[in-house]
Design a protein around this nucleic acid. Sequence first.
RNA 1: GCCCGGAUGGCGGAAUCGGUAGACGCGGAGGCCUCAAAAGCCUUUGCCCGCAAGGGCGUGCGGGUUCGAGUCCCGCUCCGGGCACCA
Length: 841
Amino acid sequence: MARAYDAQAIEQKWQARWRDEGTFEVDNDDPRPPFYALCMYPYPSGAAHQGHVRNYTFGDLVTRYQRMQGKAVLSPLGFDSFGLPAENAAIRTGTHPRAFTDARIAELKNSLVRLGAVYDWRREVRSHDPSYIHWNQVIFLRFLEAGLAYRANAPVNWCPGCQTVLANEQVLADGTCERSGDQVVTRDLEQWFFRITRYADELLDALDALEWPERVKVMQRNWIGRSEGAEMDLAVVGHPGRILTVFTTRPDTTFGMTYAVMAPEHPLVDELTTDECRPAVEELRQRVATESEIQRMSSAEAGPALEKRGAFTGSYVVNPFSGAEVPLYVADYVLMRYGTGAIMAVPAEDQRDWVFAKLHDLPVVRTVEPPPGWEEQGGEAYAGDGRKINSGFLDGLGIAEAKEKAIEHLETRGIGRRTVNYRLRDWLVSRQRFWGCPIPIVHCPDHGPVPVPEDQLPVLAPTDVEFLPTGQSPLAHHEGFLHTTCPVCGKPATRETDTMDTFVDSSWYFLRFCDPFDADEPVEPGAALRWMPVDQYIGGIEHAILHLMYARFYTRALIDVGLAPDDLPREPFRRLFTQGMIRMDGSKMSKSKGNLIAPSRYYETVGADALRLFHLFVGPPADDFDWTDQTDEVIEGCARFLDRLWRLVEGAGPEGGQGGPLAAGAAGGRAPSRTGGRTAEDDAVRRATHRTVEQVTGDIERWSYNTAVAHCMELANLLRGYARTDPHAQVLGEGCDALLQLLAPMAPHLTCELWERRHGSRLEDQRWPSFDPALVVEETVTMVVQVNGKVRDRLDVPATIGEEEARAAALASERVVAALGGVEPTRVVVRAPRLVNVVTA
RNA sequence: GCCCGGAUGGCGGAAUCGGUAGACGCGGAGGCCUCAAAAGCCUUUGCCCGCAAGGGCGUGCGGGUUCGAGUCCCGCUCCGGGCACCA
């Protein structure tokens, strides 16, 4: 494809200038109003893929646009450089993870530079930088002091093949390890946790005020899973003084409790199981113990037969409202980690209990009157609202009132209390891996886990390690690293060999960017107060829950332990935009799927500007996009547009409009030289220019980049036609300038080059164009005339036309008269100046 | 199962407040330029009937509200995503 200009030469020229001049570096004392634009901390997987290109094109557009709006824009970038792939590569090839990772970072950085994405690279942070590790460890120890970090025994996903704990995301739906394929089992291990649950309410409540996509907020609300209800203490028959505490969100249904259930791991199972029931209960507990939680959760369909899922203990508990003695079961559908690990079962109002009750022939007592016909239609558990029945002092009430009254009753009698439960669990941060931030703890035989003193931080992993495919972290076998002395007593002790979850690194990097040079503290208060919160955060929907939740938690925790200023906003990301995925043949385009289309091949042909424009133009930024066989043609269409833009602007000549030689291929062949008074057509072009400025500004503000590009194309098309006539030099020049300014954040290299050729000045220093409100109102509009709702005529009328004139003009139309066929209108709806509807019926 | 999205020409998409459906681009057709091609430029392009003028149909399906519905309401179908024993 023959190009009008040399994209590669121009792109290299401007990229070099931006780098050498530090054009987009920003100092913390910059007097302009601050704007913090941030793309999510990328994992350095090598050269950028199209998903990166899309993400960084959006981010770069925001940066450049806000800068043109007169803001001091902080646009930093760093690398989430810890993680498993580097370690796997080390095992496979013998390369040290650091060398592997640094090479990948260089590649990714290079492909972002070639995209024309601009950052203040002085602020670059990498997770594996010793200084970042240092502050990560300081933060960990402060969390520990504040009780926000703690060590506990916990059931975890353990892969016997890999000899390591897995994150939930690494366990597939069938309960196998995504890497080795081994069946993952649940194991109890001593692990480090962060107490994110302390912030559950705040993290939930603060969501309302965030300018985030609603679906992300919904996902976070579900993840936190706050549910309000009551705990109640059940007396156990034949075990005086023994109580079984259950949690319910439906205390109003207590009269309908016809049995109770404990989780298989419940501490009272042994004591409350009678000898004749013990074999069945034991069998159940054995099975559950060897299953991972994921398997257990899916056992409803794939697991053992339903009736095997529960077993009678032989004991009975007392229904606290009715006094009835009801059987106590153990069943795998009750989870130890949620609530109290035991439930009262109300089959009439809970579908799970219903299914279980039917299988075990347990009675059903309805406490809410179902709607008429419910039973006849085969209705099972009824969870909807209705009048209370069979419920003694609650009879006749609605559910909400009955709940309140039931809780009061429990509290008055001292056998229960109002309780809130959360689905959210504390964050397990231990990882049995090498390529992560070491946890700065020493285990002393006498003093237990002891923090490494702050003046001995950072604890760095040794470099002389061997990577073997044993699945074990090399740290656990490195004698030099492992053996140390106890900071308290000086006796021999061993280091903690676990590292931190890599989500730790991405939980506060945005705070470090504010002043990454500060050697005294992780977060420099003045800088953080100046830049935070992030004004626009951009990333993938896949981080909707974990990363965004952890970052929200970290920001609060850092403030509360005194590592960030008290008056720092507690929400780190004011506005969030989640971009759509790029798919190919129905699945996500990704390295692991092997369906990447490398951006470099477009840099080398159509250029980065064309690729950027394509990603902006192809559809709404929030929507997924399918990469197909036709995609290359669309990219070429974008390149063609840029070619035409080049010819148009070059043809318009330099500033002043004295007419330069028209570039080869430009239609018309005549330089615009007319000045002085303007014709009606000149004015129409001016109006179109100003209207386009208005439209594109609005488009960009509401993330409608595809229409922003379309509106620019429209103006360019108009100007090309105008340039072929006898254009007014200033009018054409104004149109071209506006177009270059509007496109500057989208196709920066080309527009900077054209601007420099036209004006000899720098487009990066220009302000975003403004429009004259008087010029965006149209003089004449097309008025649609309908007869009974069908369009019969279109009339050009003055925009200021009055209702009566519009009516008269419409009724005078020949086409309208013909369509009426002599029938008298019964009504004429006039919406001047756009529409008249003549109604006969 | 529950909770969100979405469905518009051959394709990606546009229509910001209930008022011209299909902006912009891709693809297609025809033409100019050329010995020829590529590139570029111009015209045209929702579907159907018609030589034309013109007419009819048309935003997943069925109803409704309205002078007027892609847009609002009710009931479905299909597709995509999230959650899924959380008591």
